[in-house]
Design a protein around this nucleic acid. Structure first.
Lengths: 360, 360
DNA sequence: TTGAAAGCGGTACCAC
DNA sequence: GTGGTACCGCTTTCAA
C-alpha cells in the first residue's frame, strides 16, 4: 500500500544514468552535460522526487538551515530581527526556521537542545537576558551560535544596540525640544532599561543643572504601566509635573499618551513630550504617532546572520565579533522638534488636525 | 584540530558495550539492565555526546519534529495557534518549529518545500486564504498536513472557526445591548470578513426591520482604517449615525474607539458600541477594553496538532476531519451589556472611572 | 539482555 | 563528464 518515496537511485534508473550523476545535477549542475541534466530533471519531475534533507545533511555533514530562537515572539522587535536574518540567509541560499522561547527557561533550553541535535548549520539566539549562560556549553561543543540583543561572556559573535547611548539620545532629544523636567519611567529588572537610564542621567548631567531628572520605577513596560504613570503625572501640580518622559518601552509610552489624550487636560507634545523605545509595531496604532528609539531590528538580524554565515563559510579565518549598533531616533509627533527648528515632526499626527488634543 | 563529535560508537566503546545497546538506552531504556544503562549514561555525559537528529530521522524513517507555517506572525492570532500546537506537540513528545510566510506566496511555497525535504513528521499550515492550492500536491506526495483557519478542497484535516456564526453573534450582542443602527466595517477582500458580514446580515434580518444595517468597505483592517471610519461616523448627524459598529478586526475597532474617545463628543459604549474580531493582543492596550470575538486560537492550534499526531500514530485508521469551532464572544467595555442585564461589563474600563470619556 | 550487521538516502571522491 | 563505492550516524532485526 504505502508507496515508498522515490530516491536518487530510482531517479538514476529512470534516467538511465548513474547515481552519482543524479547527485551532481542536484548539487553541481555545472559538472553535467546539459543533455544528461535534462534527462535527469525529466526523471525527477516524472517521479515526483523530493530530495531527502536528512540524508543530505547526514552525508554532507552539514545542514542548510539556520535556527532562530527568540525570547518572545509577541514583541515585534524580535520579528524584525527574524526578518533581517531571513533576508541574509536567503541571500546565502540558506533556510531559517523560528522558535519561540516564550520567555521560559525550559523552552529556551529545550529548543537549543533540539537544534543542536538536528545539527542545524547555526543558531541565532535572542535570549532572555538572564539566560546567557546557556550559550557557553553550546560553543564548547562546537555549535555555531550568534547572540542577538545581548553579549554573553566568552568567545561568541553578538549583535546588540547601545542602550546607554539610546537613553542618552532620547533624553537629548527631549531637552533639545525644550523639556526641562524629565521623567524616566521603566522597570528596573530589565538590564536594557537600566542602561538607558544611565544614558539619560548622563545627558541630564551635561546640562549642568538646567534640566532635572526624576526616576519612576514601574512594574513592567506595558500599556497598563503607562496608564499608571499617567495617573501620577496628572495628579501633580503644574510646577511639579514633568514636561518630558522617557519611557522604558513603546507600550508604556503608548499607554501614557493615550491616557493623557483622553484626560484632555495636557497636550502632547506641547505640555508633555513622550519618547518610547523599540519602535514596536504594537504602538504604531497610536493616535499621536510616537517618537521612539529604533533598534533597527531588521539590520541587527541581517548582521547576525551574516556573522554566522561567515563562520560557516570560513571556519578557519573567522574571528568572533561583537557588533554594537547605534539606536536611531525616530522623531514623530509625541515630542517637540528642536527648539528653533522650523521642520515639522517627521510624521504628521493622524487624527488630531481636526481637533487638537486637550482642547476638546 | 577540528574535534570530531562523539557518536554512538564512541559511547559504546567508552562504556564497554555494543553499539546497539547504546541505541537501546537512547530509545528503549526499558530493554536495558539498569546497570548497563547507567554505564552508558555515564559515558554519554563524559563524552558530551549529543545524538545526531538527522541520522536518527534517516534511520528511523521518521522525524520527531513538526513544522508550523503561518501566514503572518505579526498577527498575534497566529501566535496563539502556534502556542496551542506547541502544547499538544510537547505532550506527544514532539518538537515544533515555526516559519513565517509573511503573506508572500513565494515564501509559503519555499517553506513548504523545505519542510517536505526535511521530512518533518507533519506540517501545520495556516495559509494565506488564496494559496490553498499549495496543499493538494503535498498531500498527494504523502506529506502529512493539517490546515488551520481555512479548509482547502480535498482530503485534509482542518481546523477553523465559523465566521458566519461569529458575525451573527457579534451583531446579536450589539442588538441585545440596545443598538438599532448597526454599521459593519471591514475589507471585503478578506473571505473571513465577507463571511462575518453574512452572519451579521442574518442577525439583522431576524429582527424583522427593527434594526438597520449599513455596510462600509474599508481598504484594510488596520487602526488607520478605523480612524477613517471614525471620521465618517463623526461627520454624521445624530439621527444618521450608527450606534453600534461591527469591525472586521480588532485593530480597526481599536482605531475607531481611540479616535472617538479623543474627539470627546461620543461616549463608548453609550453612544457608540464597538465590537472587534480576533482578540488580537495588539488591541489589548486600548483605553476602553475592546469587546471582541475570540477565535480561541490556542485551542485551534492544539486541535490541529492533535489531528496531525493522530495521523502520525495511526496512519491506517486515521480519517480526515474538518473541525469547525464556535467563536467566543468576549464582552468588555466597548459594548453595552444586555439590556436589563444587571451584570457589569466583564472587564472594567482601565482608566475611565476618573474621567468618563466624552465628558471632558 | 546483548552484539553484529544490514540498511536509511545521499554525498563525494575515486578511477574510467 | 560519468559511474562505482565508501562512508555519514543511527535504528532495527536477528542470533547468540
Amino acid at each position: 500500500m504505502e508507496e515508498r518515496q522515490p530516491n536518487v537511485a530510482d531517479v538514476a534508473r529512470a534516467a538511465g544514468v548513474s547515481l552519482g550523476t543524479v547527485s551532481n545535477v542536484l548539487n553541481n549542475p555545472a559538472k553535467v552535460t546539459p543533455r544528461t541534466r535534462s534527462k535527469v530533471e525529466a526523471a525527477i519531475a516524472a517521479l515526483g522526487f523530493v530530495r531527502n534533507g536528512t540524508a543530505r545533511s547526514l552525508a554532507a555533514g552539514t545542514s542548510r538551515t539556520l535556527a532562530f530562537l527568540v525570547e518572545d515572539l509577541t514583541n515585534t522587535f524580535f520579528l524584525d530581527l527574524a526578518k533581517g536574518a531571513e533576508e541574509a540567509a536567503q541571500a546565502a541560499n540558506l533556510n531559517i526556521v523560528l522558535a519561540n522561547a516564550d520567555s521560559r527557561e525550559d523552552k529556551q533550553r529545550s529548543y537549543l537542545d533540539l537544534f543542536e541535535e538536528e545539527r542545524v548549520a547555526g543558531i541565532l539566539l535572542a535570549p532572555r537576558q538572564d539566560l546567557l549562560d546557556q550559550v557557553a556549553p553550546l560553543r564548547y561543543r562546537g555549535v555555531r551560535v550568534v547572540v542577538l540583543n545581548a553579549h554573553p561572556p566568552g568567545d561568541v559573535c553578538s549583535v546588540e544596540t547601545d542602550n546607554v547611548r539610546g537613553g542618552y539620545l532620547a533624553a537629548q532629544h527631549l531637552i533639545a525640544g525644550g523639556c526641562r523636567r524629565l521623567l524616566f519611567a521603566g522597570a528596573h529588572r530589565f538590564p536594557a532599561v537600566v542602561d538607558r537610564l544611565q544614558g539619560t542621567r548622563r545627558a541630564v548631567a551635561e546640562t549642568g543643572g538646567e534640566v532635572t531628572l526624576e526616576v519612576m520605577t514601574t512594574d513592567g513596560v506595558t500599556a497598563d504601566d503607562g496608564y499608571e504613570v499617567a495617573t501620577v503625572i496628572h495628579s501633580r501640580s503644574d510646577q511639579d509635573r514633568p514636561d518630558g518622559v522617557i519611557a522604558g518601552a513603546d507600550l508604556l509610552a503608548l499607554g501614557l499618551v493615550q491616557a493623557t489624550l483622553v484626560r484632555g487636560r495636557l497636550r502632547v507634545p506641547e505640555d508633555l513630550s513622550v519618547i518610547g523605545y523599540d519602535n514596536n509595531r504594537e504602538a504604531w496604532s497610536s493616535l499621536v504617532p510616537l517618537t521612539t528609539m529604533d533598534q533597527a531590528g531588521v539590520q541587527m538580524g541581517r548582521s547576525a546572520a551574516e556573522l554566522i554565515i561567515d563562520e560557516l563559510r570560513n571556519p578557519r579565518e573567522h574571528e568572533h565579533r561583537r557588533i554594537v549598533m547605534e539606536p536611531i531616533l525616530v522623531p514623530k509627533s509625541s515630542t517637540r522638534p528642536l527648539v528653533g527648528d522650523p521642520a515639522p515632526p517627521a510624521t504628521p499626527a493622524r487624527w488630531l488636525p481636526e481637533h487638537a488634543p486637550g482642547q476638546a
